[in-house]
Simulated scan of single mutants.
Amino acid sequence: MELSDIRREYTQGGLRRHDLPDEPLPLFAKWLKQAIAAKIADPTAMTVATVDENGQPFQRIVLLKHFDHDGFVFYTNLGSRKALQLSHNAKISLHFPWHAIERQVHVTGEAEKLSTLEVIKYFSSRPKESQIAAWASKQSNRISARQALEGKFMELKQKFAKGDVPVPTFWGGYRVKINSIEFWQGGEHRLHDRFLYSKDASEWTIERLAP
C-alpha cells in the first residue's frame, strides 16, 4: 500500500459555533476530561515547539502538569535544548494530538519561568526515582552509552537512599501564557471544524477557520 492511500473518515461528531464558551479554557477542560475518559494513552502529552537562535524549529513531547487562566505548565531541565532556546526566544507552541477521539488542540503563547516555590512544590510531589533521574540526566547532552546514565542513577540512588532528594538548581518549569488556542474536530469528507480563540488584551475573539 502506498502512504498516499492511507486515509480514514472522521465521523465522531462536529463542532459548532453555538457549542463554544466565551473563553477557551472551559472547552479545553471538557475535551481533556473526555480524552482521559476515553482512555487515550498519555492524554496530557503535548508537543512543545521552540525555535533556536538560527530560526530552526524543534519539537518534543512533554506532559502537561497544570493549566488555568494563567497558562499551561510543564517542567524540564533548565539546561535542556528547549530551555536554552526559550532563553533566546520565549515564543512557544503546544499541540495536543487526541487522534482517537478525532480532536486536536493547538496553543500559541510565550513561556515564562515558574517561581522557585512552584518548582519545589511540584518536585516534592514526584516519585523519588523520578527525582533522582532529574539529577542523573544532563538533558539533551551527548552521552557515551546508556550504561553511563544507569550508572549515575544507581550512584545517586545510593547517595539519597536515606534522605529527601533536594531540587536540582538546574531543574524548573515554565508557564505558557496563552495568545491563541485552536480547537480542531474531525469531520466527514475532510470538512473538519476548526475554531480559533485569539486574545486581544483581556478579550477573546472567536473565528471559524477553513479545514
Rank of each mutant, 00 (worst) to 15 (best):
N77E: 08
F74V: 01
V105H: 00
H95F: 12
L84G: 09
S87W: 03
F74S: 01
G71N: 02
V73R: 08
K91I: 04
T116S: 09
H66G: 02
F67G: 09
G55F: 11
I101F: 00
R103L: 03
L94Q: 05
A100S: 05
S124N: 13
W98K: 03
N89K: 08
Q131L: 05
L86W: 01
V107L: 12
Y122N: 05
V105W: 00
L94G: 04
S125H: 05
I101Y: 00
V107E: 05
V62W: 06
A90T: 15
P57D: 06
L63M: 14
I120N: 07
V119Y: 12
N89F: 01
H99F: 09
I61G: 02
D68W: 11
G71C: 06
Q59P: 00
I101H: 00
F123L: 10
G71H: 12
F67R: 08
L63V: 13
S125Q: 07
Q85V: 01
Q59A: 14
Q59N: 13
D68I: 13
E110V: 12
A111F: 11
F72R: 09
K91A: 14
S115E: 06
S87T: 07
H106V: 14
E102L: 06
T108V: 13
H99W: 12
S130E: 06
E112N: 13
V107A: 11
D68Q: 12
Q131R: 05
H88V: 01
A83E: 08
H95C: 09
D70K: 15
E129W: 09
K65E: 03
T116H: 06
Q104L: 00
K128R: 15
A90W: 09
N89I: 06
N89L: 04
T76L: 03
I120D: 11
F58R: 02
I61V: 15
Y75T: 12
G55V: 13
Y75C: 06
G71I: 06
F58P: 00
F67M: 10
R103Y: 03
H88N: 02
G55H: 07
A100L: 10
